[in-house]
Design a protein around this nucleic acid. Structure first.
Lengths: 193, 193, 193, 193
DNA sequence: AATGAATGAGAGTTCATTCAT
DNA sequence: AATGAATGAACTCTCATTCAT
């Protein structure tokens, strides 16, 4: 006997697929409902409105990023190694889920302010783990203490995010995870020879 | 005799203001026309359709970034100095035009694929100047030659773009240009002490 | 319990009235929706677009002409009598529905090519019944066999259509059906004494 | 030195071509102006508005039909011969000007009421010549005197018009004028053997 | 007489959300 | 809990006409 996933996750998963395949603007509630195998109205038993679906998609999926990075942050390894795992983790999750990669890197950015604000809130939890690792690195004398920690965090995230977006936009052809070494080098030592 | 700005630039400038103040989705053609002081129909004498306005806004404004960076790229100064000016130039233009900053960092990203593709094409010209500077730096033995140049470019642009976006999202309160030194440090030498 | 006509026919009927009273160009979808007592959007649950409403109106209404003429064509009566009933049938349907008469004789002709082509296709089925009767008449030696059947059909339809249009344009004042005898005479024997 | 046609006829002729090639709805004033080689505004020095162009087109072109039919009506020939020439004249003019045929048989019918009323007025003069010939035929005892003259006129015009329209709609492939004999037969003697 | 840049009113269609069943 | 038919607000673009030059 087939045990159905609870409808909530069923709808979340449907949304990721529909958005990845049709783009944010081509993803009507009716389409998501059909993909999930439920009626249009049923969606509204589990989500307040369409934005709520998207926020929930992002929250659920970011949960994976956060969970794994939290584990990394607490491993008994060096800051350099933690930063290496941070990059690798981000790339790995995206590379393993092409639909998710499209949704987070491209589609979810085409949203208006209220939604974008909610997305930022969720991202904040992920980025606070960056801060945790960076703070530790500074305290241990491994990282520069002359630069504002928010700026360090933005610099790292900016590099990872931009490289991920480029990878998605060029059709996800090359191997994203294999960039880890080089990006790790750049984060720690910069471009100078 | 009243000498008016040519209507084309008049509409472009109106569009930047309207989009910055109302968001991309709140910027109806009628609103842009009103801000520009022309009739709705007049817009269509100068632009093919609404998307064409947005593309033209981006093209005209990126033109400033490109023009100034081109001049920097050809100055008789060191690669390190060129990279410094590159960062400073980007931050300066955004800081001097708050409306433009909102439009490029937030609003113009919420666009659907055909428009985004056009925007990418325009961005490419700007980024090819990054490549020019980077290539020169590698040839002169100043920059690492072990890392793919596209990756270097993405890393730099990612840092600048992410820090700019954060600045816009936090209300453009601090001084963006004053981040130049630190970001320049990070680009060249990374986070490691 | 309120038994409503199915919405499809409700909208068709509303369209005939609205077009007859406001003319083809004065018949906005919103006006038809209001007359039908449904929301604008409901129209699009039953029709692909505005043209589809008009095509459906013509198809449904021509259905009556066709159905009755088909019955006449198969009656065990002479060709002369069939032609008499053919004329009378056409006139009777128009005279009994003033709105329909205006729509078919005047308004539906002001349409652009794609729509007109669809209308021609529907008309073809009606005219093929003319052919059936004419062919039978020729085979039975009642009608001239020296003239192309398509030309005979066009001549008959041309007379009926032109007299109907004149009747509509002059305000439907005289009795259209009462022309049947004379027109029948002309069809069979011409103007010559 | 090239003596230019007066602009009035230049615009009329341009209108016929533009309407025939683009259809009534595709014939913007700007397009007609361009074809005529004048500025948009110039049109309004010669015509009150767009409808006035169309009415003038019809009036000018019907003038040819009328002029030739008037000459026929007054020839010293029999009523049967006059009716023969009437049909032949109509077909000949249409066959010799493909653009005109499209405009009168198809495009000019897609117009709203006020314009159509004006067109009817112009047509009336043409049809009064039908009446003249028919009256003469009745008085001479050649034609039936039992049928209303308006009905006779509508029957004849209906046949000619419907056959002309069919010819245009099927791409003007066969020879229209060669239908004259058969149509003349039908008008005089009907379908009966 | 001729120009052509500027005007601005007007309507088809989509889709998130509701609610009677 | 689940359905899905019905709702109705919202916006781009065209084109006949004007009028300053």
């Amino acid at each position: 006997m087939k045990r159905e996933k609870p409808k909530y996750m069923q709808i979340i998963d449907a949304a990721v697929i529909v958005i990845a395949e049709n783009g944010y603007h081509g993803s009507q509630v009716a389409k998501i409902a059909k993909q999930a195998g439920v009626a249009d109205g049923t969606i509204y038993l589990y989500f307040k409105n369409k934005d709520d679906i998207l926020i929930s998609v992002f929250k659920e999926k970011m949960g994976v990023f956060i969970e794994r990075l939290r584990e990394i942050a607490h491993r008994p390894i060096s800051t350099e190694e933690k930063l290496y795992e941070l990059v690798k983790n981000h790339y790995t999750i995206l590379q393993n889920d092409h639909h998710l990669a499209i949704v987070t890197q491209l589609e979810l950015r085409q949203t208006r302010k209220p939604l974008r604000t909610k997305i930022s809130d969720i991202l904040r939890e992920y980025l606070s783990l960056y801060d945790y690792i960076l703070k530790e690195g500074i305290e241990n004398g491994v990282l520069k203490d002359s630069i504002d920690i928010r700026l360090l965090r933005q610099a790292i995230f900016g590099m990872i995010d931009e490289t991920s977006t480029s990878w998605v936009m060029t059709g996800q052809k090359h191997n994203l995870v294999s960039l880890t070494d080089e990006v790790h080098q750049l984060i720690l030592h910069g471009l100078k020879k």
